[in-house]
Each structure stands twice: as C-alpha cells, then as structure tokens.
C-alpha cells in the first residue's frame, strides 16, 4: 500500500490538475505576457516593456475605477455583513426562550427563503428591476420609480439614484448589498446553527441580554464564518461588472462615476481592441485581489475557539 501511494494520488489528480493548468494557470500566464505588449487582437504583438502599466496611472478612468473599488471594498462587506448578521441572529436566536430553548422569530424559515430570493435572480433582471425602482421622474411626463414615488408622497426631495454622479456609485452598491444579503443570512445561519445551543442557554440563564448574547457569544464563535464571508464579499467588490453594465448610465457613467475595473478591461479589450492594455489592467486587478485576500486573512487571524 505504501508503495502505491504516489501513483494512486497522481492518478486521481492528473485530470483535474491538467484542466486547471490549461484553463486557469495558463491563461493567467498569458495575460501577464500580453500585458507587456501592444497587441490589438489582430496584428502580431510587439513587446513594449512596462509602458502599459505606466500609462495606467495617467488614465483617469482607471484611477476612477480603482477609487470606486476602494469605496466598494469598505462599504460592501461592512454593510452586507452587518445586515446579514442582524437578520440571521433574529432568525436563529431572536425569539422567545421557550422551555429553556432559544428559538428564532416566528416564520424564520419563510424569511430565509425570502431573503435568499434575490440571490437566484439573474443580474440582468435585477438591473431592469432597479431601473424602475430607482427611476427619478420630472414631475410631469416621466413617472417616479418606487423609491422616489414614496419620497414624493411624504414630500421629501427625490433622488437621482443613477443620474446624480454623487449618488450613482452608492446606488450600485445598494443593489449589490440587496442581492448579497440573502446568501450571507443563510451562511451565518448555518454558522450559528453549529454553535451548541446550550452555550446560549447558559448565557441567557446567567442573565445575558440579546445584546450581550450577540456580541459576547455569537460573534466570537462565528468568527471563522465571518472571515470567509468577508473575503467573498471583498472579491465581489472587485467585480461589480454585471450590475454596472446593466444599470448605470452609459456603462459606468454618468461621467465615469460608477465605472469598475472589469468594465474598463472589457471596454479596452473588446471595444477599443487594446488587448495589451486591458491585460495590464487585469494583472493589476489580480494583484489587488490577492493582496486583499492575504491582508484580510492576516488581520483577522484569531485563535479559533474550540467547542
């Protein structure tokens, strides 16, 4: 058995590793290579050193996109995790103490389904949906959308959710949060379900309120799940392509106020035929994502609590 170990492992791994190398690793290497050229997709590529990377810094659209990712990187995980934690806490432990057992609020399972629903909608549908939810009317011929209709009804000023450059990026983040919350509610619910109930009950019997229960018991025990969620959301914050593409004005507008890196990459490659330059952006995005993941792991590292 000992002798056959390596051929055995190799036999199992050969196919997936080959696929991974051909379809993941190799394209990455190629992107690195293309980023050093001025390839336009047709003529033979010419190596131009690091020129593409130098040009990135004087490219207003690229700089704007990076700034947007910084905002999204902070806002998206923070808001999503907070809302998702709040909901999952209510769903799992928010109810009354019944027969010495903590339960969620009534109808918790139904709420879980409702929260999860946005997750299964295609982004294109979400985009069209929010086009009408966010719409701002002109008071006469263009009707208000759902939110502005409500604002109007209570005599508050309406908001140009996608037309006002100061608000547009937040509107995009809003949609991303709306779509993501459901998944993290389910993820955190699963995390909370794996925490032994008697810990909560013991704390509750000792007189801990909901607040204490949440911060002193739930949060520390949920740390690993939280960390995973945070990284997922951070990676999602480096994307945003689809929602910006379908919802924003002029793909990333108005005046580039919602543009994101994947959109700039797509535009440079497939609209402007600047594959070399687009690859350079891709390489930068690769390192940004990698750095973020590594940093998050490092900063949030704690001794896990055994139970």
């Amino acid at each position: 058995m000992r002798q056959g170990k390596y051929p055995f492992i190799f036999g199992f791994l050969a196919a997936p590793v080959t696929l991974y190398v051909v379809f993941v690793i190799w394209p990455y290497i190629q992107a690195f290579q293309i980023s050093l050229t001025n390839w336009n997709g047709f003529s033979a590529p010419k190596y131009i050193g690091l020129d593409n990377f130098k040009n990135l810094f004087s490219d207003d659209n690229f700089v704007a996109a990076v700034e947007h990712h910084v905002v999204m990187l902070i806002a998206l995980p923070l808001v999503t995790v907070m809302i998702a934690l709040f909901f999952s806490f209510l769903l799992n432990l928010g109810g009354k103490l019944q027969g010495g057992q903590l339960r969620g609020v009534r109808g918790a399972n139904l709420y879980k389904v409702i929260f999860f629903l946005p997750q299964v909608l295609a982004v294109a549908i979400v985009g069209v949906l929010f086009q009408t939810i966010y719409q701002k009317g002109d008071g006469t011929n263009v009707p208000d959308g759902v939110i502005n209709g409500l604002l109007h009804a209570v005599h508050l000023p309406t908001i140009g959710f996608i037309t006002n450059p100061a608000v547009a990026l937040w509107s995009m983040i809003g949609v991303m949060v709306w779509q993501a919350v459901g998944f993290y509610v389910v993820l955190f619910s699963a995390g909370m379900a794996s925490i032994p109930k008697d810990l909560f009950e013991a704390a509750a019997l000792d007189g801990a309120g909901r607040f204490t229960l949440f911060f002193k018991v739930t949060l520390p025990l949920l740390w690993d799940t939280l960390q995973v969620g945070w990284i997922y959301l951070g990676v999602a914050a480096f994307d945003g392509f689809a929602i910006v593409q379908v919802l924003s004005i002029d793909n990333g507008g108005p005046n580039h106020s919602t543009t994101v890196l994947p959109l700039e990459i797509y535009r440079n490659a497939f609209t402007y035929s600047k594959f070399g330059y687009a690859s350079a952006m891709g390489v930068v995005l690769f390192f940004m994502t990698l750095t973020f993941a590594a940093l998050t792991m490092r900063v949030t590292r704690r001794d896990s609590i055994e139970f």
Binding site: K136, G137, D138, T140, V142, G160, I162, T163
Partner: peptide
C-alpha cells in the same frame, strides 16, 4: 428637456413620444 431623461433608455423615451409626452 429634463435631467430625468438621463436615466431612461431609448425605448422608454420613444414610448413617451408615442404617448405625446415628448
């Protein structure tokens, strides 16, 4: 015109025209 048209797509504006609103 009005800034609200900045947020509309062509079919929306064309439909408004068909309704004699534009």
């Amino acid at each position: 015109s009005d800034k609200s048209y900045l947020g509309l797509i062509h079919t929306q504006v064309q439909t408004l025209q068909d309704q004699d609103k534009v």
